[in-house]
Amino acid sequence: MFWLFSLFLAGITIQLEDGAVVVRGITRPGAVAVYVEGREHLPALAGSQQQRPGEVRFVPRFPLQPGLSYKAFYGDTSAILRIPKVEHKPTARVERIYPTADSLPSNQLKLYLHFSEPMSKGEAWRRVHLVDDTGKTVTGPFLEIEEELWDPTMRRLTVLFDPGRIKRGLVPHNELGPALVEGRRYHIVIDQDWPDAHGTPLAAAYRKTFVVTEADRTPPQLDTWQIQAPRAGTRDPLTVVFPEPLDAALAQRLIRVADTPGTIRLDQGETQWHFTPDAPWKAGPRRLLVGSIVEDLAGNRIGRKFDVDAFEKVEMRMTIQTLELPFIVQP
């Protein structure tokens, strides 16, 4: 499957076999050195040398990379080894951005960017932009952490608005103010040039537009949630209606029905949580379990604001608690 360019000199051949560089026709043991072509002044590839009668075999530490050429040397003999590029058509897309609502509070904390295919690391802060309603790109709205907060499959990136500009009482907040100004319209713009895991750009750029509402400094309260319970014997979804949108990832991970496997879905701008059980509901009292670290869009948790006003004596939770909301499945 590789294109082979071998040099024949004094009966010595150098070629690729199953990802290894094989030198044949040698009369005494020796080593083969392999370099990225054009970078022979840099260190040779790491790998192991295997001596066999009449041949030496170099197994690179990592597979040779499609699209690159390598130069192998054995004494005075050398060969160029080209690894054909695998062409990938641009197919990766931004599927959605959470929150899906088209109005967000000025102290919005997080965005989740969902891609259809795995993406590559090290590009995020050049590829995602906040643009205001005059077409101007907002400077430094996001927390540009080098690690980049991807999920394990590299298909979801968490983007944090700079918390220094959100949290009251800090220098960035006082000097720059929040990145989002109430009453104005903004766009989250994703460049088409963002490379996927193959290094291929996205199939299309992406834009999400929203208007900014007043800052939300009210923690979510369980007693304001409405539970619409299903009937026994059905697999109709249980629906919980929140008075404000919740953080999509946390609402999907940290809210569930006790002892009941099923599927969770959010909609209506993350103000409705639906749970479809795997098996029909049985009549009787049930419990909705809610992790206390569920957040609203501004990072306020149940019972606690994102930035606690120390004069208001809000209780600070030291451990993650599971809260319960009872409901009844009627026969």
Binding site: I145, E148, D151, P152, G291
Partner: peptide
Amino acid sequence: APSADAKDRRGQSLRQEAIT
């Protein structure tokens, strides 16, 4: 990772933690 009830979670978690 903190979760409401780890036992009946379904599918692979998307949660990951960067160690800074």
